[in-house]
Each structure stands twice: as structure tokens, then as C-alpha cells.
Write a protein that binds this DNA or RNA. Structure first.
Length: 849
DNA sequence: ACCTGTGGCGAAACAC
DNA sequence: GTGTTTCGCCAC
């Protein structure tokens, strides 16, 4: 990254907040020269406001309880829904909370629900995470920001010239000229090195319960700070001796590391020293700091009556509080890594739980240190190593693989105009909302209330009778043709839903529009139509993101010698996250800029498209064996057929169909969303089958794996009898092991991820019973997010926690039925019955005799 | 205050 | 007994 040119007078906008003390928006800059945090208050005189259709004099003549209305201004906005200019009153108030008071007094208000610091960003057109430099001209600084975005797309432009094939980009530029102009600043700014640190603490605790951050009744015994400057500090409580700082070589992760150890006899001094050190770094990472470490430190400091560096935001409750730092930006990586959009789109759902241990294992290949005995009874060195290791893992999570996580956060922040502090704590719907709000403000469009959208479009009844607790119908799943199929081609539509939204011009202001001529522009065979007169904002943005990602960033990211490769990989991933989530948020009742018809119409068009392909394939004489939402599985199609289908799709449907893969062997059971596909090179894909699920006992997973290994030898139908015999033999030995109780307890464990606290379940399932048993027996609080491991037993309760059960307790019959159902999904297709394995003859053999 | 969606399978409890 | 509901986990 060093070669990227950024002047030393540049600053990176780490975050924007509302500062209650000054009643102003506050910028938190990272100064590239001094490498420190610089705070700056808004100097443009911007104030909180909302819009209303009540005329200014009427607003002013209302009997406001105090001096909350500063002034009223007439403003003109474009109403996208109504397609007309509207004159509104901008009611400017003193404090952000006054907006609520105004909203409660006036019948119609707009934009009153937007957080003040977000509103400030939209109004000033600021890019959070962007690189800025101070402007020379201070004349204009009274009313505008004193910074200018650094335009640094020289690299990209040079590259375009060098390649001499800018046609693709040229096409994008022409189609999305306005967006391209506005987003290339966002896409082409480098991400400079930022000084940062990660923090972790340990406390004393009670026999019975996990330390409560709100009570903070036990002393902090250790804190560790790992930095990206090679400086690691551990703060330790050592009551008997005097305070001391030593530099010591400690063995962390198998290697000797130089660590600064600070010993304190008083906890107050430990905390003061930690807080002072926290001030030295502009960017601080924690793993679960909002829910534990920083919450604990905050309450502990209050209890001990010492100054603390925290700024607490949020009301508490289920959403929890946010513990910001007054002189740094606090990023809680737990929020980021547990965010479903990040988890699935950026990390491919790779980590099994959202614990530091599992995420570190998946991303870094390293785990937490396993301690023997209680944390608060360790030798001081062992405690220091344990605590420091957690802090180092946290830092590595943010910085590993070319700073992937940090880059993703900064880029998503830039694209979605969301400050880092908010981005890392909020979900994808907030990001997309902020992005769309910013675009509205940029174009002077009125941001509608959700009610306005429903008033104008009307309350359509989603397309067909719905299943209960579903708002609309989703994808179409083809009834599979069970059997062992050879040479199966899988064709699928490239990002179908985003393509539909883009190609069919779906957006809240274009769907079911009121122009008479648009009524004929229907979506597939649905009742919906979209506008032919104007381009929808959502559709345009999504199309732009998709095209620029596929045509530019994905291509460029592949080139290893490209200095922008790492940045472009992160941009490509950021765009993927947003593209993948857009259809989902459109179907969410909480998303303010949506109407149910957008999601319903998208899914309906998807069903139409896949049915068209199925019809065409059959017309070409090819059997469709299976398909799900955007894919079709074709039985031994010729190259010609595949090419014809792909061409036909582009020409007649307007969607790109692709040959995804060819399975040498594809085993389809009678179940949907369950199959095994073996590719030409012998690698395979298991989808949906029980043998792959995380809550299947390990020994069954292993047995299933062995069966799959046998199946990968399968090349043609003549080999089936041999394969059958090998599988029968394998399964018999597994049933035998279960019967003889030769499987270790650990291998029999069923692992279930709790989605609620045990007391909140309506049904007393085995895992709920076990969770409650564990709470009673060990006095350990079991909470949502934890994993319960249990085995099925002969005891009256029917199940037992793994750590309590013995081999004799195991209910052999239950495990045999588990084996049955896991294997039945594959073997009945092969012509083997479970009864046959159990030593009984099946019907076919009976008649053959 | 916060929150992407629907379709589908299997285990087990619950309702009758 | 059966049918329905709740729950977790997965496909897309």
C-alpha cells in the first residue's frame, strides 16, 4: 500500500458522532502525519431539523413548551413517489431530541427519524472512512466543511490507459454516468496504515455465576493491550507487592515475545494506567467489548469513583449499549463477525459459532488458550499470557489477510456513508438504508415515510395465497427425480434476484407506477408492472454495483501484480455483501424504503424465469432432474443443448444463464434440497443431507463420510453392485459398533446451538432439558448462543449432557434409528434397504427368490 | 431499539 | 394413535 500516494497532510475520517456536550456533530479524524486522533466539531452551523407541510408561520405560532424551534425555512424537494416538486417547511431545532417533540406536535413530518449525525453526513455529502485534506481557502469555511475529499483515482485512470481496452468501463460509464462520477472517489481511495490496538480484560468472579458487567462487583485482575506497533502491554493486579513495570520475555503461542508487564497493588491504579494507554491509540478493537469488557470497565470505574474514557450510547434493553471511547474509535469485532451478511457473503459461513475461539480458529488457524482451573487462580505469568493472547487474536482478526476485516468495514462505511462506529454495530439493512438516504439527499429527493409508499402504491395482496407467517411466496423448487444419475449438468442464473431488480426496474417509485402505458410492462407472468418512463433508484444502484463488481473489480482483483489487487478484492467483497442482501431487505417489513411488491415481484419473476428454462429444456428433449430457485439439473445434455439454452435465456428472458458444473454422478433422493454430486475430478458436494449437518453426532458424520468416499469411486452404472456391497459392509460394521457400545461418548454427542435462553422455550426438547440440568448441577448460567452437547440415554429423562453420561446409559435403539435416517437418504436410491443391513431380506430379494 | 427473505427436512414435543 | 407445532439447520 505504501506506493499509493496520499499526502501527509491528509486525514481519514474514522467516525462522526453527535457530541452532547457541544450539541454539535463531531468528526474523529486519523491524522496521517501525526498518526493520532484529532477531534473536530462541526463549524458549519448545521442544526437538527425535520420537514413538515405545515407553513412556517403556523409552526412558529404553535405553543412550544420552550425554545426548541430555532427557525423555519421554506425548502423545495422532489417527491419521487408523486413525481412532483413539493414545498415544505424545514423546522430547525436546538437539539436532536427536539425533533421528536416537533414530530409529536405536527401531523405530517418527514425525515424526523434520521439520527442527527447521519443527517449531518447526508447534508454535507461527507464520506465516512474517506481521505480528506484541508482546503486552502478558509473564506468559505463559515458554511461548508473545511476539508476536501482527496481525489486519487490517478492509479485507475493510468491503468485504463495502459490496458487500452476501456470499452467495458466505457459502457458502464455511459449507462451509469452519474453514479460512476460519484462512486469512483469512494472506490479508488487507498486505505492507509492506521495505528491500532486490541484490548481484553479478566476479572475475579463468583463460584456460581459469570461476572455481571452492570454490577461489576469483582476487581479487574488483568488487562492486555496488543498493538500493531509491536508493543504489547499487560496490566496485572498484584496485591502484596509494590507497583512495578518490567519487560519480560513470555512464551505466547509457542514463541517468545517481549511484553511490558505493569504490576499494580491497587486496582484503581491499574485502571487509570489502562485508560491512559487507551487514549494513545486512535482505533481500538475488542471482541465483545460492548457486552462485557468495556461495559465492565465503565461500571467498575463508576463504582471505584475514578475517571473513565467511555461515552455510553443507547438505551440498553435487548439492543444493548454501545461503549464508545472519547479519544478513540471503538470497534467491537463480535458485532461485525456475528453479522449474518458478513458471515455468509464475506466469510462463506465458515465459522461454526460466533465465539472468539471458533472465529480465530477459522480465520487465523489459532485457538484461545485452554486454561486448567479458574482464571483468577492462575500464576501471574499464565494469566498475562492468556489475556494477551486473547487481545492478540482480536487484533489479528481485524488485520489478518491484508487487513481484510478492517478494509471491509472502511469500504462498507465509505460506500454506505456510515461511520465505522455505527457500521460495525449495525446490520446490512441499516447500511443499505443509509446508502439510499444519502442518495436521496444528494439529489434533493424527499425521503418518504414508509406509510407514504404504501399510500401511493396501495396495499397489494401478495401474488397468491400465502402460507401463514410468510409475507410472500419465494423460490420454486423442482420435485427431484430420485436415482443415481450420470453426467448431470447444472445450469444456473447469475445472481438472479439482483439481476431481476436491475433488469425489471424495481424500486419503490417505479413498481406499480401510475402511468397508463406502463401497465403493459409486466414482470414475467405476474400481475405486477414497472415504470417505462424513468429509472428506479434501487434498480439503478444495484445494476451499477453488479456491473462494476463483475466487469471491473473482480477482474482486477485477480491480477496478482496489480498494486490495487488487495483493495479491489475488498471492494468486490463489500459490493457482494450489499448486492446479496438487497432482495432480502426489500422483503423486510422493517425496511423503510420498500414495498412488499418489490420482494414479491422479484421472487415471482424468478419462478417465472426458472419455469421458462424448464419448459425450454423439455422442449429440447432434455429431462430436468431437479432445480432450486435459480438452477436446473439436466440429464446428460449435449453441448448444443446447453449452448442453445444459454443463448435462449439471454435473448428471451434477458437473464444470464451459466453452465455452473457437470456432475459425473448425482444422487438425488426423493427429498428437495438434498443431494450428492460427484464432479469429474472426484471431488464432491453434499447438500442438505443429514450426514453433513452440524447437529448430527460425529460418528454418524464419519460413517457418512466413509460412505461418500466409497461413492466417489463410482464412474458408471456397471460399478453399482460392487459399490452396494462395500456400503452394506461398512454400514453393518457401524451398526455393530453401536450395538456393542464401542462408540465413545464424545462421538455420540448431539450439538445444538441455543437460539434462546433455556427458560424461553415453549417446548421441553431434549436439549432444553439438558440445558436446565446443567444450570442446576453446575450453577452455570446457560444462555442463547451457547452450544449444548448431549447424548440420548436409557434414563427416564431420555437425554443427558455429554460430560455426565456413561457408555452404559446410551440408548442404542435411538442411535440405530439415527443411522437409519442418515443413510436412508442415499441408500434407498442405490437399492439397499436399511432392513437389509439389519440382516433382514428386503421385498425385492424376497420375490426374486 | 433493533431486525434481509422463503422453501424444506427431520426430531421431538404437544394437542387431540 | 394421528396430525400439528416448535425447533434447529440447511439450500438458495
Amino acid at each position: 500500500m505504501a506506493e499509493l500516494s496520499v499526502g501527509s497532510s491528509s486525514r481519514l475520517l474514522l467516525s462522526v458522532r453527535y457530541d452532547a456536550e457541544s450539541n454539535k456533530a463531531q468528526m474523529l479524524w486519523y491524522d496521517l502525519e501525526s498518526k493520532t486522533l484529532v477531534k473536530e466539531l462541526d463549524a458549519t452551523g448545521h442544526g437538527p431539523y425535520c420537514l413538515t407541510n405545515v407553513p412556517p408561520n403556523e409552526v412558529l405560532s404553535k405553543n412550544w413548551s420552550s425554545e426548541i424551534v430555532v427557525k423555519c425555512e421554506e425548502v423545495t424537494k422532489w417527491n419521487l413517489l408523486e413525481e412532483k416538486e413539493v414545498k415544505l417547511t424545514k423546522v430547525i431545532v436546538d437539539k436532536p431530541t427536539d425533533v421528536i417533540k416537533v414530530r409529536n406536535q405536527l401531523e405530517n413530518t418527514w425525515e424526523s427519524h434520521i439520527k442527527y449525525h447521519h443527517n449531518w453526513i447526508y447534508d454535507l455529502g461527507i464520506i465516512p472512512g474517506g481521505l480528506y485534506s484541508k482546503t486552502e481557502n478558509t473564506e468559505e469555511s463559515q458554511s461548508t466543511l473545511r476539508y476536501r475529499l482527496i481525489h486519487d483515482f490517478r492509479q485507475m485512470e493510468a491503468r485504463l490507459k495502459e490496458m487500452q481496452i476501456p470499452q467495458v468501463i466505457q459502457e458502464i460509464l455511459e449507462r451509469y454516468g452519474d453514479l460512476m462520477d460519484n462512486y469512483r472517489d469512494v472506490f479508488n481511495q487507498p486505505i492507509p496504515e492506521i495505528r491500532c490496538a486490541a484490548v481484553d480484560i479478566e476479572t475475579k468472579y463468583d463460584e456460581m455465576s459469570f461476572p455481571s458487567p452492570q454490577k461489576a462487583e469483582y476487581p479487574v485482575i488483568a488487562a492486555a493491550m496488543a498493538t500493531n506497533e509491536g508493543k504489547d502491554v499487560v496490566f496485572l493486579l498484584r496485591e502484596q507487592e509494590g507497583d512495578e513495570e518490567v519487560v519480560k520475555q513470555l512464551k505466547v503461542k509457542g514463541s517468545l515475545q517481549e511484553v511490558i508487564l505493569r504490576y499494580f497493588s491497587r486496582e484503581e491504579d491499574l485502571l487509570k494506567s489502562l485508560f491512559k494507554e487507551l487514549n494513545e491509540y486512535p482505533l481500538i478493537f475488542t471482541f465483545n467489548g460492548d457486552n462485557f469488557d468495556f461495559a465492565y470497565l465503565y461500571h467498575r470505574a463508576k463504582r471505584l469513583k475514578i475517571d473513565h474514557p467511555f461515552v455510553v450510547r443507547g438505551a440498553g434493553g435487548r439492543g444493548g449499549r454501545e461503549y464508545l471511547l472519547s479519544n478513540a474509535v471503538h470497534i467491537d469485532l463480535y458485532h461485525f463477525f456475528s453479522n449474518p451478511a458478513i458471515k455468509t457473503s464475506a466469510y462463506g459461513n465458515a465459522y461454526p459459532t460466533n465465539s472468539l475461539d471458533d472465529i480465530a480458529d477459522t480465520i487465523l488457524g489459532e485457538r484461545k488458550i485452554q486454561l486448567e482451573g479458574r482464571i483468577d487462580e492462575q500464576e501471574l505469568d499464565a494469566l498475562a499470557i492468556y489475556c494477551l493472547n486473547d487481545a492478540q487474536l482480536t487484533l489479528q482478526l481485524a488485520l489478518a489477510r491484508d487487513r481484510t476485516a478492517l478494509q471491509l468495514m472502511i469500504l462498507l462505511g465509505r460506500i454506505c456513508k456510515t461511520p465505522l462506529e455505527d457500521l460495525n454495530r449495525s446490520r446490512v439493512s441499516s447500511w443499505i438504508r443509509n446508502l439510499l438516504y444519502f442518495e436521496h439527499r444528494r439529489k434533493n429527493y424527499l425521503i418518504p415515510n414508509q406509510r407514504d409508499i404504501y399510500d401511493v402504491i396501495g396495499r397489494v395482496t401478495p401474488h397468491q395465497a400465502m402460507m401463514k407467517d410468510k409475507k410472500f411466496k419465494g423460490g420454486f423448487v423442482v420435485e427431484p427425480i430420485p436415482g443415481v444419475h450420470f453426467n448431470v449438468a447444472v445450469l444456473d442464473f447469475a445472481s438472479l434476484y439482483p439481476s431481476i431488480i436491475s433488469a425489471k426496474n424495481l424500486s419503490y417509485e417505479t413498481i406499480l407506477c401510475r402511468h397508463p402505458e406502463c401497465v403493459n410492462n409486466v414482470l414475467g407472468d405476474t400481475e405486477y408492472w414497472t415504470c417505462t418512463r424513468r429509472k428506479g433508484m434501487l434498480s439503478n444502484l444495484l445494476g451499477f454495483f453488479r456491473d462494476v463488481r463483475v466487469l471491473w473489480f473482480k477482474q482486477q482483483a485477480k491480477e496478482k501484480d496489480n498494486p490495487l489487487s488487495s483493495l479491489y478484492q475488498s471492494i468486490e467483497k463489500s459490493l457482494k455483501v450489499l448486492i446479496n442482501a438487497t432482495y432480502g431487505v426489500m422483503g423486510s417489513e422493517f425496511f423503510p424504503l420498500s414495498h412488499i411488491s418489490i420482494a414479491d415481484g422479484t421472487a415471482a419473476t424468478g419462478r417465472w424465469a426458472i419455469r421458462q428454462i424448464i419448459g425450454k429444456a423439455e422442449q429440447l428433449g432434455v429431462r430436468v432432474l431437479y432445480g432450486d430457485t435459480d438452477s436446473v439439473f439436466l440429464e446428460s445434455p449435449t453441448k448444443d443443448v446447453i449452448e442453445t439454452l444459454i443463448k435462449w435465456s439471454t435473448e428471451h428472458l434477458g437473464f444470464d444463464l451459466e453452465l455452473e458444473k457437470i456432475y459425473r454422478v448425482c444422487i438425488l433422493s426423493r427429498r428437495k434440497k438434498n443431494y450428492l454430486g460427484i464432479l469429474e475430478d472426484g471431488s464432491y458436494e453434499i447438500k442438505g443431507l443429514l450426514g453433513k449437518k452440524r447437529n448430527t453426532p460425529p460418528f454418524i458424520q464419519r460413517a457418512f463420510q466413509e460412505m461418500v468416499n466409497i461413492l466417489t469411486d463410482l464412474k458408471d452404472p456397471t460399478m453399482l453392485p460392487d459399490i452396494r456391497e462395500r456400503i452394506k459392509k461398512l454400514l453393518k460394521s457401524y451398526y455393530n459398533s453401536v450395538e456393542k457400545r464401542r462408540i465413545p461418548i464424545e462421538e455420540l454427542a448431539i450439538a445444538v446451538h441455543l437460539t434462546k435462553n433455556p427458560e424461553d422455550y415453549e417446548m421441553e426438547t431434549p436439549f432444553v432439558k439438558v440445558a436446565k440440568q446443567l444450570e442446576e448441577k453446575f450453577g452455570r448460567k446457560i444462555t442463547r448462543g451457547m452450544i449444548i452437547r448431549y447424548v440420548r440415554t436409557n434414563t427416564p429423562e431420555g437425554s443427558m449432557a455429554v460430560e455426565l453420561a456413561k457408555v452404559e446409559d446410551i440408548d442404542v435403539a435411538t442411535y440405530k434409528t439415527y443411522l437409519d435416517s442418515t443413510f436412508e437418504q442415499i441408500i434407498d436410491v442405490l437399492g439397499i434397504s436399511t432392513r437389509e443391513i439389519h440382516g433382514q431380506v428386503n421385498l425385492m430379494q424376497f420375490f426374486q427368490k
